[in-house]
Design a protein around this nucleic acid. Structure first.
Length: 516
RNA sequence: GCCCCGGUGGCCAAGCGGUAAGGCAACUGCCUCGUACGCAGUAAAUCGCGGGUUCAAAUCCCGUCCGGGGCUCCA
């Protein structure tokens, strides 16, 4: 339309009228009157699409090259169905196209819900959901501390007119939230790099202090296309724990990389997620460092999909992802580590070397994975178990209720209180179903809410001091002494974060957030 | 953002042009109960929202919001 009239049209953004009659009625502050200059867009680089090569690297050492259009020919994948499904889903977009189960579960378990009064992809967390989120954040903090990373906090909003902020933002395909104030435009952070790079630019680092490790956990906002937001799998607002390591050379960076790789493996294990590994590297780098990749895979005893890029097209030369493959064959990246050799100089993050000279360093960018996505992955894993006939559940350390006491009659309530206090004191989440219901009904409710340990208390228990524990995981009914039960739970939740019950101990006192 | 599908009490849902079934949950009463649903009763629905067609709309049409799938995207 405009082209016909000799205007130089760079592009017509979505959301703006491409054809309209100009009547000049609009208020100057209205949505429709904006100045859009082509240079903003021109900075968006057109990436060449040189094809990647793919292979499966077994942790025992063999390489199995594969063509994406003929992955059936790659026999090793028959041994690793999850990896195969990952390749189908991630690289080829082939999946059954059903709704992932966590969407129903997050509501059924009263954890998380939609909030229509907010934007798409912004959720509300109910008490038990908040409890789980808090525990996971706590885990992230502990992992960061174990890495020796220093925690920082940087702003959520940034000025769009700062050149480096603007440069980073424009690279991100306009997926940022912008806040237009009368005198300036602010950008909501979509990653931690903005504030971190700003901070690091001013930091004085000597080679003696390297590697320097920095941790931040904070909300990030990405204006994903509305059709792309799916439950807790992809959100517009999420919590990102990330670690950046600033290293003086490649050797040191590779050492750090390994430490991160193994730490993040601990995280997914703590959440009992059966994940898949993908590495993406510049081909030349892979050829020189294949032994290194193999060492990493050997430590976690897993094969990996390897994507070889003919040449560097991003800021990293090597990265890997731990990926969830969900109950309906979809996938989502959990954690990632990226080896970045160019951003340091670009953003002026320098250290002083042995000769007193300022030098660029190597940056390891890494994200442990968003907390919300961890919850997605755990709920999906639970469904995968259920499909195999195993009772779905969360890891014990994350179960909102770890032990439920069910008195047979009201008169045993007092005794329940007494032993629950004892269990409480040991940092175990125990509650009591004191509602006026039959035992069978209370058990059914506890099972429906995935309570891992259920104890029915009646006259026999009071007399013998023994507790009959219904164990969800194994579907057995086992008798424990109270101390024995406590130490068993302690053993299973050892070294994991703890928080108290999110709701009143007595079920009769609990409001219902979602009744289903 | 685009295309397809969906939205009915707190939750799950039947009805699909004649004026809102049923189940679960909740509440009240009874039952005091031993390992997945005791019995009875009560209350609870602007049929997502707005507009249109019709004597009549939850049902048909248009718009819009929310959700799911697909496309695209995931630096």
């Amino acid at each position: 339309m405009l082209k016909e009239k000799d205007f130089n049209v760079a592009r017509a953004p979505f959301g703006y009228y491409k054809t309209f009659e100009i009547k000049c009625k609009g208020h100057p502050l209205s949505e429709l009157s904006r100045t859009i200059l082509p240079e903003e867009v021109a900075e968006k680089e057109e990436e060449e699409k040189a094809p990647s090569e793919y292979l499966v690297l077994a942790h025992e050492g063999e390489e199995h090259f594969l063509k994406l259009d003929k992955i059936e020919d790659c026999k090793i994948l028959d041994k690793y169905p999850l990896l195969k499904q990952f390749i189908l889903s991630e690289e080829l977009g082939i999946r059954p196209g059903e709704e992932p189960s966590h969407i129903k579960l997050m509501r059924k378990l009263e954890l998380v819900d939609y909030e229509p009064a907010s934007d798409v992809g912004h959720f509300r967390f109910y008490p038990n959901g908040t409890l789980i989120k808090t525990l996971l954040e706590e885990l992230a903090l502990e992992i960061a501390a174990s890495l020796g990373a220093s925690r920082i906090e940087t702003p959520l909003l940034y000025r769009f007119d700062e050149p480096d902020i603007r440069e980073q933002a424009l690279k991100f395909h306009q997926k940022d939230y912008k806040l237009k104030l009368p005198n300036r435009t602010l950008l909501l952070r979509f990653a931690g790099d903005f504030g971190l790079f700003r901070m690091m630019k001013d930091v004085v680092m000597s080679y003696k202090q390297m590697p320097v490790r920095i941790f931040e956990i904070s909300p990030s906002f990405r204006l994903e296309q509305s059709g792309e937001c799916v439950g807790l799998k992809r959100l517009r607002a999420f919590t990102m724990p990330d670690v950046h390591c600033f290293c003086k050379d490649l050797n040191e960076a590779l050492k750090e990389y390994e430490i991160l790789f193994l730490s993040y493996n601990k995280i997914v294990n703590a959440m009992q997620i059966e994940y898949v590994v993908a590495f993406r590297l510049v081909k030349e780098f892979y050829q020189k460092n294949k032994h290194y990749i193999l060492k990493l895979l050997g430590e976690i005893k897993k094969p990996a999909l390897i994507e070889l890029l003919p040449k560097a097209k991003h800021y990293w030369i090597m990265k890997h992802e731990f990926q969830e493959v969900d109950s309906v064959g979809g996938n989502a990246q959990l954690s990632t580590v990226q080896l970045d050799i160019e951003d340091s100089e670009r953003y002026g993050i320098l250290y002083v070397d042995e000769n007193g000279e300022k030098k660029g360093c190597i940056i390891l960018h890494s994200s442990m994975g968003s907390i919300e996505r961890w919850i997605y992955a755990m709920l999906e894993e639970a469904t995968k178990k259920a499909k195999k006939g195993v009772a779905p559940m969360l890891p014990l350390w994350l179960a909102p209720t770890q032990v439920r006491l069910i008195p047979v009659k009201d008169e045993y309530l007092e005794y329940c209180q007494k032993i629950s206090d004892k269990i409480d004191r040991e940092n175990i989440r125990v509650d009591i179903d004191d509602r006026n219901q039959t035992v069978a009904k209370k058990i059914r409710d506890a099972e429906r809410h995935w309570v891992p340990l259920i104890v029915v208390i009646g006259e026999k228990e009071i007399n013998t001091n023994q507790l009959p524990v219904r164990i969800r995981e194994t579907r057995e009914l086992k008798t424990f002494g109270i101390e024995e039960l406590i130490s068993e739970i302690k053993r299973k939740t050892e070294n994991m974060p703890f928080r108290a019950l999110a709701l009143p101990k007595l079920l009769s006192k609990r409001p219902i957030f979602i009744s289903s």
